[in-house]
Design a protein around this nucleic acid. Structure first.
Lengths: 157, 157
DNA sequence: AAGATATTGAGACTCAGTATCATTGTCAAC
DNA sequence: GTTGACAATGATACTGAGTCTCAATATCTT
């Protein structure tokens, strides 16, 4: 099930490049193959490293130049959790999702969607004179329930 | 109404330093006076500039060393909007607020509160087995309305 | 094959933030 | 008040993610 989706994403991106009169180069192929060949979140530097395993000629500059194209195409999502690097999600097209609950005790991150939330955000923004472009909700919590069930592998304290 | 609050915050912070056996220095006084003498959000570099107007001996290092103390004391809130600098809110103790709309074109930031939002977040979190500890909603938008009124001094493009 | 131009890699650069370290300031004990 | 332990300081070197520049190269259309 995952395979075809990944290929579809790759094809979509190549089409995106074509539509913008951008060229399909060996380096971009290596980067795109890497991005859509994993399910994991990654940083720019990780992507550079992985892409270089496919094509050692890929440079840092090209990775940083390609990432905005990937996010612009809507196939990859850029996330900022307040660290000094950004994290990219290659599954965005399949599961577009900007809402995260992070357990402060363990590393569990749960994503969720909510139409009611989207609607409320739009309502509030419009009322304040803004047009929503993107949104990100982060809820820091403790997974009491899961702790009881032994699913939360508490790390600190 | 704002005056006493500001002084209260200042006193609280000096008490916080004392409780941690940290020293009250001229530079920290200048920084604290600056922080609690404004209602505006600020960056570390802005704080440095402003504090230097009160005491020219304040260094960048001291500002960056004092900011974590201010946030640790709970009187100032650190925010990260995905730009390459952090923004600090000196009103945190009075109006704890984690919902922001950021205009991507200009630097305008609007805060808002919403009981409906809080309630919805609680509802969703509980449903997923979490207990909310804190939350942060960031909406990136364009202030179309304000642009029309000439209030959004669009910078790029 | 040729030409217009998009793309590239290398490395210089930016900029917020951190680390280092010799010097100075604070404050409690005397 | 002096003293002294040590917290705090400024200057400055450094870090690390990300950007910019530019001459050289690759792509794609004709």
């Amino acid at each position: 099930m995952a395979e075809p989706d990944r290929n579809a994403a790759k094809e979509k991106f190549l089409g995106f490049l074509e539509a913008k009169n951008l060229r399909i180069t060996a380096q971009r192929r290596a980067i795109v193959d890497t991005v859509f060949g994993t399910d994991q979140h990654f940083t720019a530097e990780q992507l550079l490293e992985w892409a270089r395993e496919k094509d050692s000629s890929v440079s840092r500059a090209t990775v940083y130049r390609t990432l905005p194209l990937l996010t612009e195409s809507g196939l990859v999502h850029e996330m900022d959790f307040g660290k000094d690097y950004k994290i990219y999600d290659p599954n965005y097209a399949d599961h577009p999702n900007h809402n995260h609950i992070i357990c402060d005790d363990c590393d569990k991150i749960v994503e969720f969607e909510s139409d009611r939330l989207d609607q409320l955000e739009n309502e509030i923004s419009t009322g304040l004179g803004f047009k929503v472009k993107s949104q990100q909700l982060r809820i820091n919590a403790s997974c009491e329930e899961m702790k009881r069930l032994g699913e939360c592998k508490n790390k600190g304290n």
